[in-house]
């Protein structure tokens, strides 16, 4: 069967193209043609915030999307979606889902907003976001007073706590807003995607590696349709998702490094890498915000505890 899965990728961006060309044929192969996937771009069938409901109703067969969108419906998704300053690499956080307690608490949060009709297949991030900036933000202290575009989730709370002014403008206006200084920096995407959309051209002081975020995604399916699959196909789907995400992580990282290195050599562009001292300060601020968000609901608390527990097991925290 062919399953229609809505993503949070824009049509034609690097990630969609890469997945479509390299990974969609593989799932068909792995299941001997029993599972075929059709990825549709962000917002093409239902608005990004509504995909869990749409999957529950069977309007979509599944979603492959960033979950920050759902943080207004359940605060746990702000923590699951992007635990700012929590993990160092996407691989660690993928591990939280794949080998740790991640999937279990994630499924609970999904059940809360989608009436138990949506099955989580896998979850995790594939990139660290860079922060395109039009003025140099060289240290934690430089954040003070800066206008930073940030949409839903923990990011805006963390920026506010660090002394910046989070501005909520639609993604479609980010380019113009950066170009003309309506904002000083923008919560956007991976370095390679920012380069593709031209953000790095109008924001010559990109912060890379980023200081703030590693947005986490989920692959889900309508529960009834997932249950119809044989256990082998269910397992194949999960394995396929994590293989694809690990591959995407590597490819995007490689591209990011390459482009950042090229840009560093360019006249007029300064790629800023924060000193460890600033990153530590950011982490202190961010952790306070984790706690605040964890108080917003029982599930949010559970999500944070699960993350902290896993961080201890891999030695990120003591």
């Amino acid at each position: 069967d062919t399953y229609t899965i809505q993503t949070s990728f824009n049509a034609g961006d690097f990630s969609t193209t890469y997945l479509t060309e390299n990974w969609l044929p593989k799932i068909k192969e792995m299941t001997d043609g029993r599972v075929e996937i059709n990825l549709t771009p962000s917002g093409s069938v239902v608005p990004s915030k509504e995909t869990p409901q749409a999957v529950a109703m069977g309007v979509l067969d599944g979603d492959w999307t960033s979950v920050n969108y759902f943080s207004g419906q359940e605060p746990a998704f702000a923590i699951l979606g992007d635990l700012i300053s929590g993990y160092d690499t996407p691989a660690q956080m993928l591990g939280f889902c794949k080998d740790g307690p991640g999937e279990k608490v994630w499924q609970k949060a999904l059940d809360a907003i989608a009436d138990g009709e949506v099955q989580l297949v896998g979850c995790g991030p594939y990139s660290r976001e860079a922060l395109p900036a039009r003025v140099p933000i060289k240290t934690f202290e430089d954040l003070k007073g800066k206008k930073i575009r940030s949409p839903e989730g923990l990011a805006s709370a963390v920026f506010a706590a660090a002394g910046a002014s989070p501005v909520s403008i639609p993604f479609s206006e980010v380019y113009g807003a950066l170009e003309k200084g309506i904002v000083d920096a923008a919560d956007a995407s991976a370095y390679v995607n920012n380069a593709a959309t031209g953000l790095n051209d109008v924001a010559p002081y990109p912060l890379y590696p980023g200081i703030h975020s590693m947005p986490s995604m989920e692959l889900t399916m309508n529960k009834a349709k997932f249950d119809e699959l044989s256990p082998e196909d269910q397992k194949a789907l999960r394995d396929w998702f994590y293989m694809a995400m690990e591959d995407l992580t590597n490819v995007v990282h490689e591209q990011d490094e390459k482009l950042a290195a090229e840009d560093t050599r360019k006249e007029g562009v300064e790629v800023i890498d924060w000193p460890q001292e600033s990153r530590d300060k950011m982490r202190v601020v961010a952790r306070k915000e984790w706690e605040k968000f964890a108080e917003k609901s029982d599930l949010a608390k559970e999500a944070l505890d699960a993350n902290l527990e896993y961080m201890k097991t891999i030695g990120l925290m003591n």
Partner: peptide, 10 residues
Amino acid sequence: RPEYSGTALN
């Protein structure tokens, strides 16, 4: 199940 904007203003 109230739904908030999830932004800074929430």
